[in-house]
Computed example of a mutant assay.
Amino acid sequence: MMWVLLIIGILILVLLILIFTKVRVYIDYKRVQTNDKIHIKLSAWYGLIHYTFKVPVIKKDDDSAAIVVKEEQEMNGKTEKEEKKKITPEDLRDGFADMKELLQHMVGFHRVIRQFTGKIQVKKFSWHSIVGTKNAAHTGVLTGACWALKGSIIGLLTTYFNFRIMPAYSITPDFQRWQANTSISCILQFRIGQAMVTGIKLLRYWKGGKPHFRSRKLAKLSGDSNKQSF
């Protein structure tokens, strides 16, 4: 009996530690000319446990309309997986179809997600861009439009997320050449317990029975493991 109580006590302690554990998400995105780089790092317990996801190369496939993505995943500094993938227009179409399917089965999806994002603390947010054309007048118009667009996006983000700092952003015009370079760096923080509560709420408000997903990975969840994109 003592062993059972001890095991239950340990499980409760582990669950409490997990619930109150803070997770930091570091996101860095850079686009220079035609090269895109994405670096996402998840860290917990002051870096004792960390997981890194890198997409160092994103480019268009010369032989098709697909996008070639090179992925690298690391766990505590050790490379777990490295592979190349092709993202086709069909994959994007199936992804949007799956998102629509999820939204149709979720009651109050927007409200639940907004409650969660409101608890996500933004510790750092910077977004700097360089835009330009060879025409000074066109560059001026483009710069103004980018300022307006970026200001609207950041305003929307501050509505949904809990910003602990003022976002830093800029648009630098280049009147000498064509340019569309940008870099985004941000740090997000939330508790695992908050994510768990959000997942429970989403399951609670699920309706309409089993969904029918089209993408291969999500089709396995709905029992259509042999389903192909059409």
Rank of each mutant, 00 (worst) to 15 (best):
G118I: 03
A145W: 13
P173W: 13
K134I: 13
G199W: 06
K201N: 03
A136T: 15
A148W: 15
L188F: 07
S183R: 03
V131A: 15
L149G: 10
G151I: 06
A136F: 15
I120W: 06
M166I: 01
T139P: 04
K123G: 06
C186F: 06
A145S: 14
A137Y: 15
L156G: 03
T158W: 08
H138K: 10
R164Y: 03
K134N: 14
V131H: 15
L202V: 02
T182Q: 10
G193M: 02
W127M: 09
I200D: 06
I171M: 09
A168W: 02
G144A: 06
R204I: 07
T133F: 13
K134D: 15
S183D: 07
S183Y: 05
T182I: 08
Y169L: 01
K124A: 10
D174C: 04
K119D: 15
S129K: 12
T198K: 10
V122I: 04
G151S: 12
K124F: 11
S129W: 14
T158V: 13
A137C: 07
G140L: 12
S183F: 06
Q179V: 05
Y169Q: 04
A145C: 08
S129N: 14
S152W: 14
S170A: 08
S152C: 10
L157A: 06
T139F: 05
V122S: 00
T159M: 04
N181T: 04
F163C: 00
C186Y: 02
G193K: 00
L149C: 12
W127T: 07
Q176S: 09
W178R: 03
L157C: 02
W127S: 13
Q115N: 10
K201F: 03
Q115M: 07
F163G: 00
G144R: 04
I184N: 11
F175D: 02
T139S: 05
I184H: 11
W178I: 03
L149H: 14
G155F: 12
C186A: 06
Y169W: 12
F190T: 02
Q115I: 06
K124G: 05
G132Q: 10
Y205G: 03
Y205P: 02
K150P: 09
G193F: 00
A145D: 14
G193T: 02
Q121H: 08
G132R: 04
I192M: 11
W178Q: 06
Q115K: 09
K119C: 13
A148L: 14
V122C: 00
W147L: 12
S129V: 10
G132C: 07
Y169S: 06
K124H: 14
W127K: 05
A145H: 11
F175V: 02
A145R: 10
